[in-house]
Amino acid sequence: MSQVDYKEAGVDITKADAFVERIKKLVPTTFNDQVLQGIGGFAAVYKLNDQKYLASCTDGVGTKLKIGQHLDKHHGIGIDLVAMCVNDLLCVGARPLFFLDYMAFGKLDTRISEELIAGMVDGCRQSGMALIGGETAEMPGIYKDGEYDLAGFSVGELTPSEMFKEEAMSEGDVLIGLASSGFHSNGYSLLRKLVKDSETELLEQLLIPTQIYVETFMHLRQKFQSSILAAAHMTGGGIHNIPRMSENFDYTITSWPSVEEMAPVFKPMLQRMDLSQEELFRTFNMGVGLTVLVKKAHAEAVMTELKGKNIKAWMLGHITRGSGQIEMTDWKL
């Protein structure tokens, strides 16, 4: 088993969080009165007029790219790029509209680039978004031949009543977790250190694309409307994304899916790690890709709806007034 943690693998989440806090003082100097939600949220929200807001966000795929490059499989990476952006849009209550991409190569390989674009098209179709443009750069000296990096940018729309608001949240409201398809696109700087290049089958499991939650989430909002109160995309930082719903509540986690209930790739990978439960939950999504906050009175009905559509989900806990803390009660994986 490996005792290497995410920081030792080259990613310092604490430093990244501190960086965001520092630029929160600088970036808002560019804001005008139309900016309703800016840096630090899952997506920014901009007021077009009294009836319509725009939401926008940007993201990448991280070092999961290296596995795709090693296996020479790139379609799923294109899906990942879309998923990492569009799932963030959902967390402010927006409906996805369109997507743009940026691809940078050491030397352009048209086969690989077409495979990446085909994956993005697949992801956009799943999300109901138009892929309306992008940029492709060749950067010899920055990337080696066969290497590339990606960035995605997505925009959605919402009305004022569709924007999630802290005032709608109450003590006792229930956290429901929707299953992830695997590790999604986070934690790969550590994961790649635990797998040999020759372990093709396991590497292919690690390459499974990030789950896109648009269809499920939009269905829940349409059916249960104001009873869907907030959402958290479980990306870098893992469970610590949940308090981004509101820092004025605490989040009590009373249960979590077992390793056997998670996507199959978790079991062999977790067996190779010697990390504390706290570190695991701070680094990986741990089987839950999107956490949804639901009015207590409708939580059972939401679970029944998800089960009826064969969507794996779990009740994770509830919220109380507080200061953005997570309490994990006495349970273990």
Rank of each mutant, 00 (worst) to 15 (best):
L206G: 00
P209A: 08
I242C: 08
F224M: 01
P209F: 09
Q205R: 11
G187W: 07
G177M: 05
E199Q: 14
E166Y: 07
H233Q: 10
A230N: 15
L202I: 14
Y213L: 06
R244P: 02
E171Y: 06
L203R: 11
G177K: 02
K193S: 11
I228F: 02
N241M: 10
I242Q: 02
H233S: 11
D173I: 00
S246F: 08
I239R: 10
S227Q: 14
G172K: 12
Q205M: 13
L206S: 01
M169K: 07
E166V: 12
D173P: 03
L220D: 04
E215N: 11
Q211G: 02
S198E: 15
G237H: 05
E167R: 12
A168T: 10
I208L: 09
Y188D: 00
S189I: 01
T200E: 14
L190T: 05
L206N: 00
G237R: 01
V214N: 11
I208A: 12
H219A: 15
L229R: 05
Q205Y: 04
G172T: 09
G237Y: 07
S185V: 13
R192T: 13
H219T: 12
A232R: 05
H233Y: 14
T235C: 13
M234Y: 04
I242K: 09
Q211P: 03
P209D: 07
E167Y: 04
G236A: 15
T235D: 07
S170M: 13
S246L: 05
E166C: 03
H219Y: 15
A231L: 06
S189C: 05
P209Y: 05
S226D: 14
G238Y: 12
S170L: 14
E166K: 14
I176M: 02
T200A: 06
L220I: 08
L203V: 03
H219S: 15
Q211F: 03
A230L: 03
E171C: 13
F217A: 09
T210M: 11
L207R: 04
L178K: 09
G172L: 06
A231E: 02
I208C: 07
G182E: 06
F183K: 01
S181F: 13
Q225E: 12
G177D: 03
I176W: 00
F224I: 01
S198G: 01
L190N: 01
L220Y: 06
Q225F: 09
E201G: 02
Y213C: 06
G236I: 03
D197N: 14
R221P: 04
L206Q: 01
D173R: 00
I242G: 04
G238E: 05
A232N: 08
K223G: 00
